[in-house]
């Protein structure tokens, strides 16, 4: 079995299995605990609406905090949106997802995806620089923060190496023109999938739970989120 077959086969399935098992285990760690019964008279019973309001509203920084958080929030927006554009909009990724799930959609123009790569690349570097230089971030950062950054940056770097020679548009070849860089890129993505449920990257699913619970609690009290 060559490296590409390994990356496309056993490594991919193993990483997906770990992603799934780790996610379930981490969620179980939360949901195994009882939700405390609250006997206080609620001001509102629209708790689910409150949870959604917090989940969606949490994406928009509050005016009162704009002065202090604009830079960090804008940068976070850049790499989150950039990564989404790359993962779901770049033609080879659309083919990859189609092979895996049978689902497909029209890709974005390659130029847009390449632009997203450039923006995300710079944005992630800014995030790291910010973490290394800001006194608050330096104090509160742990191994998880730096390793998670590396784990996200790695597929971007290996992906950029795999772009050359360019992917021919129009059809998905069975064997990439540069199999080793593509295999390394795949393996780096698989490393990300393996790490995701264990570290802070789990915020990709935990965000709905923590924001939602706070939103429901605030709705109960009639307080703003």
């Amino acid at each position: 079995m060559d490296l590409l077959s390994f990356a496309r086969g056993p490594a991919l399935w193993a990483s997906l299995a770990i992603l799934l098992a780790g996610t379930v285990w981490r969620l179980w760690g939360i949901f195994r605990l009882a939700a405390k019964e609250d006997f206080s008279e609620p001001r509102s019973t629209r708790l689910i609406a409150g949870a959604w309001r917090a989940i969606v509203g949490g994406m928009i920084p509050k005016d009162e905090f704009r002065n202090s958080t604009t830079l960090a929030t804008s940068n976070a927006y850049l790499y989150h949106v950039g990564l989404a554009v790359i993962v779901f909009g770049y033609l080879p990724h659309v083919y990859f997802i189609e092979r895996l799930t049978g689902l497909s959609w029209p890709p974005l123009p390659a130029a847009v995806a390449y632009m997203a790569v450039a923006v995300t690349f710079v944005s992630l570097l800014i995030a790291l620089m910010y973490r290394l230089t800001d006194p608050v971030l330096r104090l509160i950062s742990s191994f998880d923060d730096y390793f998670s950054w590396f784990i996200v940056f790695l597929p971007l770097a290996t992906g950029m190496a795999a772009i050359n020679p360019p992917f021919p548009s129009g059809a998905a070849p069975q064997t990439p023109l540069a199999p080793v860089p593509v295999a390394l890129h795949l393996l780096s993505v698989e490393l990300l999938l393996i790490w995701l449920p264990f570290g802070k990257l789990a915020h990709s699913f935990l965000v709905f739970i923590s924001r939602g619970m706070t939103g429901a609690e605030c709705a109960r009290k009639g307080a703003r989120t």
């Binding site: 009882a34 405390k36 971030l137």
Partner: peptide
Amino acid sequence: FSRATAAHMEACVHCGQCAQACHFYVTTR
């Protein structure tokens, strides 16, 4: 500990933004 407190313990992404909302941090840095 309840489900909600566990969810909150698990969720921090170490973004440090909470510092900007705290009167004790903002006035002392």
